[in-house]
Amino acid sequence: MHTNRTAAVKNILRKREVSLLVLIGVLLLAVTLRAPGFATGQNASRIINDTSILIMVSIGQFFVILAGGIDLSVGSIIAFSGMAASMLNQAQPGIPAFVVLLVGTVIGVLLGMLNGTLVAFGKVPAIITTLGTMSIFRGMTFVLSKGQWVTAHEMTQSYMNLPHGNFLGVSNLIWWGVLVSAVMLTLSSYTKSGREIYAIGGNRTAAKFVGVSEKKIQFMIFTISGLLSGLSGVMWTARYAAAVNETASGFELQTVAACVIGGVSIAGGSGAIPGVILGALFLGIINNALPVINLSPFYQMFIQGFIVLFAMLINTLSARHNEKMLLNRRRQ
């Protein structure tokens, strides 16, 4: 009976999520000690608001990494769909904002499908596919905009309200983050396709034996990643009231970082969405804390690179440790 209880408890509170929560607590405490105004309710909601887009795109990245791939094109998809939606909004202010949102999202889906087709049916490795499309989509953004920006006064209020409006005192953007998280959590834990992603990433051959279609899953995950990036592209341009050609440049690293910090194995097959959300929040807090502790925002890139490397190091060492423990127990 003791067995059942411990195993069950372990499943509910996976180690990684708990230690991340503790880590986030310590981080908040440390920053607050230096800048007492940091840990207020208002600031907290600002950080969550800021992090919602990262959470959404990271979840898409999570699915791709879970299946053993990587999507380097998310930042470029955000830029292209955000630019396209903003230009549509600028050119046709009469079109309702939610239709523009839909258009931006569909563009993301299509770009994701292109990635998915190349990987699943063209047998091009995910890293090469998305390295290529990262450039292609970014270049397409420039070609589409002819190098121009869309700025706040060229956007309609209802467009900017997509993320900025609020419901029950909580901003729409946070609601979007919550909605996406809930839907994707359901997808990953309660649907057949969701579990099949775990199967593909965990053991390709075994997955084939039980009838999982690798092509279908690969196509699906890149499509989901595109969808979430497309949606986020619209949200991004509306939130910052600007569509520029460099939007979300380098953002792919942040999404990979959120996954790695959240305990997702970079080799695929293990990880869960709650960890990814906490990983994204952790990054969000750091990004917001930089100015508070008087570090210039130019440090952001360095710090993010450092955190990813460090988080991967922790993952690798803890995996090694676990393996050793297993061996110790197995036969002595």
């Binding site: 834990s189 099949e196 775990y198 965990g202 075994a206 034996f209 039980v210």
Partner: peptide, 29 residues
Amino acid sequence: QEASMFPELSVTENIYMGHHLRNSKTGMI
């Protein structure tokens, strides 16, 4: 004959991968 298991997944899921039991109304696992 070959190792056809998913080491990172639970015993339950290893048994049911490919034919998960689903709620007949919602289609959820």
